[in-house]
Amino acid sequence: MESSVKQIKNSKIPINKRRKPNLNITNIIFKGFLWIYATLSLYPIVWMFFYSFKNNDEIFVSNPFGPPTTLRFENYVSALTQYNVPKYFLNSVIVSLATVCLTIFLSTMFSYATARMRWKGQNFFRIFVSIGMFIPVQAILIPLAILVRDLNLSNKYLSLIIPYTAFNIAFSSMVLYGFLRSIPMELEEAACIDGAGIFTTFFKIILPNLKPAVATLAIFNFLQAWNEFPIALILITENSMKTLPLGLLFFQGQFTTDWGAMGAAMVIASLPTILFYIFFSNQVEKALTIGGAVKG
């Protein structure tokens, strides 16, 4: 199948040939643009890495953009010692992974029901849940904190996992809804004729088709949970329950901030997200190629 895709696309060449001269110039400009934009997207990581070895003067005044003049490893030392890194790291991993799993589990079921099944109020409830996407988090912090206390969740992993999931469901359901609407109805019809029940159909036929979307959402939700700051700041009071973003507080003073050490902390905190992304992105890529084969 993959090769036939190539064949088809390759066979376009003769048509294009007729406009070749014109196309070449735009092509070169376009290619150039793609590479420039790629550089622009890649530079921040390099910059963050440089930054983590500098002091405040270099960061802001003498050398904001180039490589560091001296490698200040003490930034990493102070990031690692001031911060209970291993513990915070573990907390972040647990909270983020649990959020990803729970969010995907709930939102695939919910969006299947709203996108493909027929019941009264399906549109209403779909939009109802999408409200989660545009509630300013800062507005509900205090009510949320009271709620978490009343549910007896204070200073437990669930005190973060549950709010993160509840908020992420909105985004995930909207993405999944779009995907589910574009899968052909014949899938269920065939399953139905074969005598499969709805749950079998959902888990065996529909979910496999959602793989690219699910992998994409795994990335989105992971990033969301990993980098989340305002809710964690308000809800976590126990030092042993803190997540990585809260550790950045150690460097920010009222009048001065130790930006270099903060940069080092951010490098440490960013690595897992980059790895997680590259891994799942490759999954998406594979899934999409296979998914295309199923449909084509």
């Binding site: 709930l106 849940v129 989660g132």
Partner: peptide, 22 residues
């Protein structure tokens, strides 16, 4: 029954954590 199983967990969670503060 299937609709209820698919929809209720999300709706309950969402209503308590997001809608109630809203």
């Amino acid at each position: 029954k299937a609709i209820a199983i698919f929809v209720l967990p999300t709706l309950i969670l969402f209503t308590i954590i997001v809608f109630y503060p809203l």
